[in-house]
Design a protein around this nucleic acid. Structure first.
Lengths: 112, 112
DNA sequence: GCATAATATTGCTTATTAGTAATATTGTCA
DNA sequence: TGACAATATTACTAATAAGCAATATTATGC
């Protein structure tokens, strides 16, 4: 394989997936679902977003295939469809932490 | 550590980073810089975006700390500041490929 | 069937941003 | 210094999306 650059269409697909993770509210939903499935009401309670917004964001994540859902009586439980997203988030969190640490080290060295 | 959920501020920082990778043009720039630093003109030639747009997106990636830059005479060379982003993209690409494959397998099994 | 609870949808406003053409800046060379 | 090439900036338009209040849907228990 020579160059292996993604074409326009593939880049769009990758961008689309990143876009899903580019909103604090959706990230909040995902991290709350990490341990176990939750009903919509539980997610609303765990975050500080309105019910209509949570429902909308859940729909977006579900339509994209990142979440599964299952009805249990009156409640609808959402769960993570592909735990890979946590690997993504872990990478990002690791980078942010490392960046913050080296920033701190720089400030400390200047203060001497 | 008990829950270790990210707070609002941290979620925003994570979202911000994903947002940078949520645009096809910026992804295109990044993948072109993977092998070696390139001047702005070279990037414009490698992608199919206008100069002003490339310059703008380069500025965004640079301001965010994802790119470094160095002037060499009349040219300005940009390069990747943190190769971790390629790990992120590899994860996403892997997921998309796997999803596509299982989708294909499903279609094939239905065709029998 | 009716009242109620849980979730989804709709219509709307507001904010953000990609992309562009035109112009400004910066550096090089003669 | 002046002409030219490379890059950055500006002002603008158009499209997208988050968030909200209000309303609609769906399921439960009486």
């Amino acid at each position: 394989m020579a160059k292996s650059l993604l074409d326009q269409h593939q880049l769009q697909a990758v961008a689309k997936l990143f876009e899903l993770l580019a909103e604090p509210t959706r990230l909040d939903i995902l991290q709350n679902l990490k341990k176990a499935p939750l009903s919509v009401g539980q997610i609303v309670a765990a975050t500080n977003a309105k019910q209509s917004n949570i429902s909308k964001q859940l729909g977006i994540l579900y339509d994209a295939g990142l979440l599964k859902r299952e009805r249990q009586g009156n409640l609808i439980f959402y769960s993570i469809a592909d735990p890979m997203i946590f690997d993504l988030c872990a990478l990002v969190c690791g980078k942010l932490r490392k960046d913050a640490e080296s920033q701190l080290a720089l400030i400390r060295s200047l203060g001497k």
